[in-house]
Structures are given as structure tokens and as C-alpha cells.
Design a protein around this nucleic acid. Structure first.
Lengths: 342, 342
DNA sequence: AATCGCATTCAAACCGCTTTGAATGCCTCA
DNA sequence: TGAGGCATTCAAAGCGGTTTGAATGCGATT
């Protein structure tokens, strides 16, 4: 059952039927009702493909998921980010298009999505420093929202980000207040923007108390369990081992905990740990009592906000760059305590 | 740049250009090359919307990701499964459409995908016992592949699954061979098909040695870190605590390890643990030496296989139900040892 | 020289909707 | 009575491809 057929049954032109169903004002109310009834009766559903071609809108949003070619790693926060964004899309009748792409091949995919007219807008994931994608998107003229920011990018753009600098600054200050002086950092890869900002926050807090960051107890790596373990072992076997550590993710924190326990130490007593908690649904930081003291910010909520913002840009409800900075909470768990005396 | 324009530049008809690009045989080779060169030069990409309308094919595959309404949990294996499937799709020019849906609302979404003509086929995730979606898909006549199986479904259907029963049977036997007699199970939710099969394998192995499964040391829950911890604490505080545990996921295993260590026990000495390892990219089971003894099967590979199978069904390269049972490896790590004498 | 077959190419219809510009009918007002 | 205005409906032209059926040109065959 298509529009033409339905129109014939009603003895109306396709034009009128289309207008009746799409709520145009120039249709007689009686006619509109007749059409609506027939549409219901014959179970008419307009063909999406035709609508898209006719209107020129894709009614779809693209998410390009870069897979680190180096280690084939998929960022675990995507699942929850996308869950949040997906809610918003389906509420608004948009589809979500996912492209999984080796991260050395992203530009081609964006260009293709654009020229094929497959999407009306795009979410940029995992921005790096001076990320070239921002210039690319701007040049292509596709509405886009960045999840995170790209330090060094001259152009204005829309983004949703957590205040990573502030979060890690506060976390560091909290450790300093507990008396810690030797505080290590287990960071993500430091060409990722969020990692740069976290490091900045950490260094700023130390500097403010006249402490210098010690590269020997700062690491930067993929945020996996194994990397957390590896860096943990390396730092904790040093004679001048840190008494506290800042960790960029829950998963890394689990690896670190393994290292701590393997070294016969106790987390929260011998070594204090603060992680960043994205509130991944399958990896909650404890239930009533948090396992880790953490800077916390829901990545699912970020997904919702970014999707909302993007739809605003696509539909023209908003123009020009929009920015949203979410603050992370600092929640106190069992993994921190005063500097051990000894 | 569209087809008409490109044709004009080449001084050819749209027909010929279209055929040249789509590899039809009736085009002169010289012409084909000329067209290909021009397409490259002008960066021509056929408009997806138009192709879809003209051919009636969506050139897209749907993945419906159910989000557990109870706890809002996104299954962490999706990310890697989708990474695997996505590779296959993009190699074949298909798009991947993701719908994130509360799990009580799935049917409507499938019907909609179908009637809107948004996809050519669908992957069914996380099948449950007697899963109604199989009958639904069959009735709607959409090609589909199930990731997993649905015990109790009478209809034939295509699937890709791990031999979960066999994996857990072997794992249990391995523990029995190490002298363990009191072996617990930390399973996923037991309306999920894979969980039913794992339990079956575990019970079969016990029964074969004349042992009965003890419900007091069997749990079934969401596969989160917290649930692993909770079940671990519960079982390990029993006077007749198990000396070995089978765990349905790496993440749960991490929670269990936390419980073990908190109880002052040592994993691999006081308590043996075998997990199931999906080889999630961000959660590798150790690097050279596995942390956990594990039944191992790559979910990313499963994603590739399922996608391949689905495309075969869509294009008609395969008809009728196809089945693929992947065997899990049993890899020995540091989390198992002989039953402690005491 | 006329016919045929083959390799190429093309014009036009079509996919199913939206949208523009025009037409129709009826009522109102001068 | 005729013009103007308004409400309503319609025919036809897109959107950008694919596909059908016909046309063209040319060498080979009779």
C-alpha cells in the first residue's frame, strides 16, 4: 500500500493525501479525517526511502567509532555513550548509523557519509589534540558535535565535555589534603584531549603547593586493565614509590588494584587511589559504598546531551557553536586515606 | 556531484555511467575506465537515498541493542561484537543501524525497521529461552542471524554461537581433576540462553562424577563487577565454602577477585577460579600470562562470522538456516590450582 | 549491396514520496 | 452581474539513482 494507491482508493490526488497526513493547513478537516481513517484501515506507512530522497534529509546521525589500529581497542565508554544518544535519536525518529573504522582511515569515512548523503550530522568521538576532523567537518559543512574537546583547534565548534582538568585538579588537591606528597598518575594516551587536560589539572594542583610532577611516576597508555596493572607494578616497585595514584579509568583502576595486592599492599591504607568513573552500566563503582574514591560523570548522560545538541543543530533550532561543560563529582570511596606514616 | 552531472561531463548518458560504475558487462572497457577515472577525480559517490529508493534495498543491517530496563545495563560485549560485525559491513558497502531499546519494547522496533524498509536484515542479540523474536522475524520474513541460540524455539533459524555447554563442562572437569569437589557457579541471568547452557555443562560434569550441584553455591545475576563481588562474598563466608568457582565473565571475575582478597584468601591457592573470557579488547585476560584460567572465545570473531552469515542470507548466497558453533579454548592461567589440603 | 549480429550507448520510465504553481469552485462585495 | 478572495484540490516536476527497451554503428556474412 503506497501513497498513490491510497489516493486512488480515496479518489483524491496524492498531493492532498500527503498533505493531509503531514498536517498541512490547506486541507479540509473532513478530508483529513477521511484520509487518516483510510491510512489506518489499510495500514499505510510511508516508505522511508522515498521520504528521504524527496526531502533530502537522511533522518540519520552518524557515529564513527575509531578502532585503535595499534592494539585493536574499542573504547569501552562507547557502549554507554551510544546508549544515551540512542535514546534521544529514537525519541526523535532518527536512526543511528555506526561505522567502525581503523583510526587511520577516518577522514575517508566522514567524507563518504557526507557525499553519499547517508547522515544529517555526526558525532565526533575521542578527539585528539589538534584534531584534524574539526577542520574537516567544518569544511564539509555537516552539523557535528564533539564528545570532548580538541585543544589547539582554532575553529569554533560544538562540544559536550566533562571538566577533566578541574576534576583531576580537585582529586589531586584532595590527596594533598590527606597528606600525600608523592602522587602518581596513570593516564590515558596523552595525545587524547581528555588525557592532556587531566594531566594539566594534576600538574596545576601540585604546582600550586610547590610540588613538581615526577615523570617517573606518571604513565600514559591505553586504558586497559593490563596497562593499569603494568604501570602499577612499575611504580610500586620503586624505592620512592608513590603513596597515592590518580587513575584515568575504572578499568585501569582494577588493574592497578591487582598490582597493589600482588605487591602485598592494601589499597586505601598503603596506597590511595582515585579513579575517574564514567558510570559504565556494567562496571559500577560499587553499589552503596563506592569501591574507589572517584571523579564521577555519567558518559551516558553525555551521550544524551550530545545527541540533543546535534539534533538542535540539524533542525536549526540552534545555530552556531554550542558548548556544554559538565562538572564531575568527587565521590569518596574506600580507596583513599591519609598518607601512611613511616 | 551527482550521476547526471558526471554523465554530462563525460558526454555520456546516465545509463552508461551507472552501468560502468556498477560493473555491468555491456560497457566498453575503455569507457568504463574513463568513467571510473572521472568518478574518482570528481569524487563522485552515488547518493545512498536514491540507490535505496531505486533498488528497494536498504543496504543496511539492523542491530537492536536491548537495554535491561531493570538495571539499565548495556551488555559490555556489544562493543566488541559490533566492532567485528562492522568490519564486515563496511567491507561490503553496508551500513549498520543501531537501535538502543528498552528490552520490553523490542518487538515494535523490529516491526518498524521492517515496515519502514530501513534494513535488509537483522542481528538478534542476547537471545533468551523461548525467545519470541525468532517467531517474529520468521513471520516478518526478514533475514536474520541470532548471536547465540534460543533453547525451546521450535522454528529453524540461523545462528552463530559458542559451545557454552561444552566450555563449562570442560572447565568443571578441569577443576574436578585438580581435586576440587565443592565447585560454585557465578552465572549470568538464567533466562539468557547462554547462561542456561553453561549451567547445564557445569551440572553435567558434576553429575558424571556422581556429584550433585548445590544451589547454595550457585548464583545467577547480571554480569557486573558488583554482582561478582556480592556473590563471592556470600559464598566465601559460608562454613562450607567452595574451593573453586566458575564465573560467567571476566568482569564478574574481577568482582570475585575483590571478594576473595577482601576475605584474606588467595586466588589460585585458596580458591580456584575459571572465568569465561570473551576477549574484550579493553579487558584482556592478562598479556603474556593469563590472569585467569578461562574458557576463551573471541566475541569479535563471532561478530564477524554473524555478519558474514547475514550478508550471505541477504544476498541469497545462502538460503535456509545456517548454523555455526564455535568451540571455546580452555586456557590455563594463574587462578587455578589443586584443591587446598586442610 | 543488403542483411545480420554484436557491442555499445541512449532515452525514458520508474522507485514513492514532497512540493511548486496552477486550477477549481464558491462566497462576498461592489 | 462580474470581479476578487479564499479554501481546497490537483497535475506535474522534482529528488538521484536503476532498469527496460530501443537505437546506433560497424564489421562480418550471404
Amino acid at each position: 500500500m503506497n501513497l498513490k494507491e491510497l489516493a486512488r482508493k480515496l479518489d483524491l490526488s496524492p498531493t492532498t493525501v500527503s498533505r493531509a497526513l503531514n498536517g498541512y493547513p490547506e486541507v479540509n478537516e473532513a478530508t483529513r479525517e477521511r484520509v487518516a481513517a483510510a491510512a489506518r484501515r489499510y495500514n499505510y506507512k510511508p516508505n522511508t526511502r522515498a521520504i528521504r530522497l524527496a526531502t533530502g534529509r537522511a533522518m540519520a546521525v552518524g557515529h564513527v567509532i575509531p578502532v585503535a589500529t595499534r592494539h585493536e581497542i574499542v573504547n569501552p565508554v562507547f557502549a554507554d555513550f551510544i546508549a544515551g544518544a540512542g535514546e534521544v535519536y529514537s525519541r526523535n525518529g532518527y536512526d543511528m548509523l555506526l561505522s567502525v573504522v581503523p583510526d587511520d582511515n577516518e577522514e575517508r569515512i566522514y567524507r563518504e557519509l557526507q557525499s553519499r548523503g547517508a547522515v544529517d550530522g555526526v558525532i565526533i568521538h575521542a578527539p585528539r589534540m589538534n584534531d584534524p576532523r574539526i577542520a574537516l567537518m567544518t569544511e564539509m559543512g555537516i552539523p557535528f558535535v564533539v564528545h570532548g574537546r580538541a585543544t589547539g583547534s582554532a575553529l569554533p565548534y560544538s562540544w559536550v565535555d566533562v571538566n577533566n582538568r578541574r576534576a583531576f585538579q580537585r582529586a589531586t588537591e584532595f590527596l594533598l589534603d590527606l597528606g600525600h606528597r608523592r602522587i602518581g598518575l596513570l593516564n590515558g594516551l596523552e595525545f587524547m584531549d581528555f588525557a592532556i587536560r587531566r594531566r594539566k589539572g594534576y600538574e596545576d594542583a601540585l604546582a600550586e603547593r610547590g610540588l613538581a610532577a615526577d615523570p617517573a611516576i606518571m604513565s600514559s597508555d591505553e586504558m586497559t586493565e593490563a596497562a593499569g596493572y603494568r604501570a602499577g607494578i612499575a611504580m610500586l616497585t620503586r624505592p620512592d614509590r608513590p603513596t597515592a595514584l590518580l587513575v584515568s579509568s575504572m578499568i585501569m583502576g582494577l588493574g592497578l588494584r591487582r598490582a597493589i595486592e600482588e605487591r602485598g599492599l592494601r589499597m586505601g591504607r598503603d596506597v590511595s587511589v582515585i579513579i575517574h568513573d564514567d558510570e559504565l552500566s556494567y562496571l559500577r563503582n560499587g553499589e552503596d559504598v563506592p569501591i574507589f574514591t572517584a571523579t564521577r560523570s555519567s558518559v551516558r548522560e553525555a551521550g544524551r546531551q550530545a545527541a540533543d545538541m546535534l539534533l538542535d543543530l540539524i533542525t536549526g533550532r540552534q545555530t552556531g557553536p554550542v558548548e556544554l561543560l559538565l562538572e564531575a563529582e568527587l565521590i569518596i570511596g574506600q580507596s583513599t586515606g591519609p598518607r601512611p606514616t613511616s
